[in-house]
Write a protein that binds this DNA or RNA. Structure first.
Ligand SMILES: [Mn+2]
Ligand SMILES: [Mn+2]
Ligand SMILES: [Zn+2]
Ligand SMILES: [Zn+2]
Lengths: 146, 146
DNA sequence: TATCTAATTGATAATCCTTTTCAATTAGAT
DNA sequence: ATCTAATTGAAAAGGATTATCAATTAGATA
């Protein structure tokens, strides 16, 4: 399920939130980025073309997306605050260490592992967090050469 | 490979760091806790019995452990700054949502999944982050009753 | 379309959380 | 026992996030 700008607008309306110029610009910036962005990243990008955007509004909009379940938070070794737009269904991330590109994938083969682990440890497993990092197809070449 | 206080003392000496009263008390607090602790958690616990410990020293000691590869950082939904003492070999975490207990486990069944994902996406996978959350054996009962 | 009102905004201040600074202390070598 | 560089705690500085508040505005209403 791919999330579009239209979809987010609908979600905002359904939740009774107004469609302001500022919100839409933040949302567009998150949507149109292939890699993940921190609040500061977003603020800086927006600031170029829209000098009057407030940092607080960036934070507020991100929180809104999060509340509506449309935000994916990433946890790399260097930072736990960057995010992408994310489908509401459970999925995981493939993150390129070269260019930062984020690819979503669903968890299939995780189920058996989860079951056997639950049996071994007595845990009742409710959730999991899984992220692979490495080099995407295009960064792979650069990475080999250096 | 279980990490003991003696092991950490050896590591400190090998790295040329001094075995101070403060460092050892921080290390002991991390070792003796079943669940994960934030820097502030540690500071508060230590402060009771050792009122003169400085918060900066807690941070400094944690960084030292991290540098020596003896610190495991956890990423729960509520916080990305808590840690436990961790084996230097690659492993993952089972975190109880009830009591916070952390159980380490090694990644076996991950390999095939990783391979097929690499083939599908063209990624050269270098690392991954995996955490299961749920309820441990003892918290399981409480959780069912409520 | 003009009016109204509660939601939203940006600037600023206030709160964290973490690191840096620095003079005083101290672990461990001699 | 003496020495010295590493370490310490307190306080200041820095960075990130949140709260405050008067001014603005989206969208409902007439
Ligand atoms: Mn995602
Ligand atoms: Mn661990
Ligand atoms: Zn994290
Ligand atoms: Zn890449």
């Amino acid at each position: 399920m791919k999330i579009t700008e239209t979809g987010i607008k609908t979600a905002l309306r359904q939740h009774g939130y107004k469609l302001t110029r500022q919100r839409l610009s933040v949302i567009n910036a998150v949507i149109s980025s292939k890699d993940s962005l921190t609040p500061a990243d977003l603020y800086n990008r927006l600031n170029r073309h829209y000098p009057d955007i407030g940092l607080a509004t960036v934070y507020r909009t991100l929180r809104l997306l999060d509340e509506m379940g449309l935000l994916c938070k990433l946890h790399t070794s260097s930072d736990c605050n960057s995010c992408t737009i994310g489908a509401p269904d459970r999925h995981h991330h493939l993150i390129c260490s070269g260019c930062g590109k984020v690819i979503d994938f669903s968890c299939r083969s995780m189920a058996e592992f989860e079951t056997s682990l639950a049996k071994e440890t007595g845990f009742e497993i409710k959730d999991h967090l899984l992220e692979f990092t490495g080099y995407c197809q295009s960064c792979r070449i650069d990475h080999m050469q250096s």
